[in-house]
Design a protein around this nucleic acid. Structure first.
Length: 301
DNA sequence: GGTAGACCTGGACGC
DNA sequence: GCGTCCAGGTCTACC
């Protein structure tokens, strides 16, 4: 058993990260609401697959997992640090939103961080799975992809293996690349998205496309957006969602839900276009995405 | 530069 | 049960 205590930049609220969006409901995440523990099945670079149990801690988060070597501990720490954005600083956003009643709770609740997967590859695929479909189908596609192509937790204690036998890590690009679009369409139920995720997996697995480099790229947001939108299946909504995950807040992920929220907030439920959404948040400039995402919406069913 | 229509799944609804 | 309709972003083709 290994326990890691990872500190976070203040302010930090574990629950705010968990509830930042629906990601904790997508495999290989699991969330125990009663115990307030986030589970995640992680594949380490040496091929070992471990189950992480992540919970709130005095100064950040605590991670419990199988006994790990030092190098493996460092890898887990790096992964969780990224997933929770432990070092992210939102003080400028808090200062900007200080006088906006609809964002007044932002600093107190430490809003700003969004839960992310360890790799951008995983988050791009999950984001493509959210497009043009209902949330139930998104969960379904992700679950099936993990079950079909993910590697199971490496069992050390065989007598306990039944407890973790079902958990698998998110598939590697290689594993998805080795499949084919027809299979992804039929078995994963990815529909017309299948060629897009297969193509991405092939490009990443071949080493020709360094997707993970975008996590730390210092490109201007507009350039980064262009780069994300060059990925098949990633349009304006998906790119904005991924930018928010990457800590860039200049764009709003406008989907049909966003239109509904804005419509009820300012237009008495009358239909609105993406233009109206942009207009309403224009003044927030580079905090546009955050202001939209953490707005205290009237309509919230 | 803007937009109609096709893409695919799953849930709702009517028979 | 079975068929029909609809919601949901992206992409292509065509103005």
């Amino acid at each position: 058993m290994t326990t890691l205590n990872l500190p976070a930049r203040k302010p930090f609220h574990f629950d705010s990260v968990i509830n930042s969006h629906g990601w904790c409901q997508l495999a290989p995440f699991s969330y125990d609401k009663v115990a307030n523990i986030l589970g995640y099945t992680l594949r380490l670079s040496n091929g070992r697959v471990v189950e992480l149990m992540i919970c709130d801690d005095k100064d950040g988060v605590r991670v419990e997992t199988d006994k790990l070597k030092k190098s493996e501990q460092n890898e887990v720490a790096d992964a969780v640090n990224w997933m929770f954005g432990l070092d992210m600083d939102f003080s400028d956003f808090y200062a900007a939103s200080n006088h906006e009643p609809k964002l007044a709770r932002a600093k107190k609740q430490a809003l700003g961080r969004v839960l992310r997967s360890p790799t951008l590859f995983e988050d791009v695929i999950k984001t493509i799975f959210t497009t043009n479909t209902l949330w139930g189908a998104t969960r379904n596609m992700t679950r099936k992809l993990v079950d079909e192509f993910g590697e199971p937790v490496t069992s050390i204690h065989h007598e306990h293996s039944t407890l973790i036998a079902d958990n698998k890590a998110f598939p590697t690009p290689e594993a998805i690349a080795a499949s084919n679009p027809a299979y992804l369409k039929e078995k994963i139920r990815a529909g017309y998205r299948a060629p897009a995720i297969h193509d991405l997996a092939v490009r990443v697995a071949s080493g020709k496309y360094d997707l993970e480099a975008l996590k730390t790229a210092s490109l201007p947001t507009l350039e980064l957006r262009k780069e994300l939108m060059s990925i098949k299946g990633v349009g304006p909504y998906a790119a904005a969602n991924l930018l928010l995950i990457l800590g860039r807040s200049d764009f709003i992920p406008v989907d049909s839900w966003a239109l509904k929220l804005v419509s009820h907030e300012w237009y008495k439920g009358e239909p609105v276009t993406a233009r109206e959404v942009e207009k309403r948040f224009e003044k927030w400039g580079r905090y546009k995405g955050l202001a939209f995402w953490f707005w205290d919406w009237k309509y919230n069913q």
